[in-house]
Simulated assay, not measured.
Amino acid sequence: MSRRANGEGSKPVKRKDGRWAVSLRYIDPDGLAKRSTVYGKTAKEAREKAEEARRRVKRSQPPKDSRVVLGAFVEEWVASTLAVSDRKASTKAMYATLARKHVVDSDLGRSALDRVTPRKVEAWVADLRKKGLSESTVRSTYTVLRAVLDTAVRDRALGENPAAVVRRPKVTTKEANYLTVDEVETVLDAAEGSRYAPLFRLLVNTGMRRGEALALRWSDVDLTNRTLRVRGTLAREHGQLVVTEPKTAKSKRTLFLTDESVEVLHAMRERQRVERAEAGSMWVETGFVFTTEFGQPSDPRNALRAFKAATSRAGIAGAGLHTLRHSAASVLLAKGVPLKVVSEILGHSSTAITGDVYGHVSPDVAAEAMRTLSTALSA
């Protein structure tokens, strides 16, 4: 008898349980000889399933999808694929939480991989929305599921990713909340006396993110040439304050310092000189610009608490430290600074993001623009 070709199956055989079975021998993409068996209620059904299995083998896919439960596969993904990825530690922690809370603990998560279909993924997304989760959380959780199923395809547990054909949940872009120039001064005045007042002034004068400013080291600052380099972001991970890579590739940037910013940084250097002398042997030299009284990096949470206290004294509600960044961007745009320049100052990955987040235009600026248009047309 001649040897059967790759993917060729046996003739349907009726089993004792009444089902019909067809066995296939094939060589997987790694060159290993494998066997797979498909079943049907009738000989015809078994042959049809065998034919589909052959087509999948020819596409270098597994002859049939795995019956491993999705939730179990997710747990393995968290412990292996996610753990060794080059994502930030904070992102890994967030993805692991989303995976366990919204994928493993769901009807979809209790389904076998071969039962996960695009329609079931869509129903799962609808359930996430019914729970009242934010748009960004729904999209992030979908991103996690898609990454998990991509791994299943890579590992040949699935032939195709059923989530890949499901439209990615959208997030409605909201314009950033910002303060007027007068409100900024009111808040900064209310913060005077706080250890974090210099940080607030630097943020609003540079448009930096909180973590970027707190990650600054004196080696990043050139007061002679009035520049500073943004090279990282300070955040708390696993209970420790660490400097990680910036949010985007374009977040690494050089900023030019205004007179106000130079004054702030000179004051910070002098304050550190005094505190270093007072702390004596208890001082820890870390090189950070913003530190505790003993030289350790400042905690972002403490900075936020201090800012909230200042806004409360100023009678301004709903403002956070990011509001200072938004306020700086709004002033730049209102003064006619080109969108591309503002985008580079803020470290956005594209001008589209800048335009979406800072699409607002003050009534005065809009009115002046219309007057300019009218003058030009009537000239």
Rank of each mutant, 00 (worst) to 15 (best):
L179W: 02
S134E: 13
L108V: 12
S134T: 15
L158G: 04
E160N: 11
R115H: 12
G132M: 09
T180A: 00
A147Q: 15
L128H: 01
H102Q: 05
V171I: 13
R168F: 03
S134A: 14
R139V: 15
Y142P: 06
T173L: 01
T180Y: 02
V166D: 04
V144H: 00
V171Y: 00
V166N: 02
A123T: 12
D107I: 06
R129L: 00
V104K: 04
V103I: 15
D107S: 11
A147M: 15
K120R: 14
A176T: 02
R115C: 08
E135C: 11
N177M: 01
K170Q: 04
D114T: 11
S134L: 14
A157S: 06
P118L: 10
D127T: 14
D127W: 01
S111N: 07
E122L: 08
L108Q: 04
V138C: 10
V144Y: 07
L145D: 07
R115E: 15
D127K: 14
T141W: 01
R167F: 00
Y142K: 08
V165W: 04
A126Y: 01
S111M: 15
S140L: 14
V121R: 00
V125I: 15
G132C: 13
D155G: 02
R139C: 13
T117P: 04
T173D: 02
S140C: 13
E160K: 13
V148K: 09
G132L: 11
V166R: 02
D105I: 01
W124D: 07
K101D: 04
R167S: 09
P118N: 10
D105C: 03
D105E: 14
S136A: 15
V171E: 06
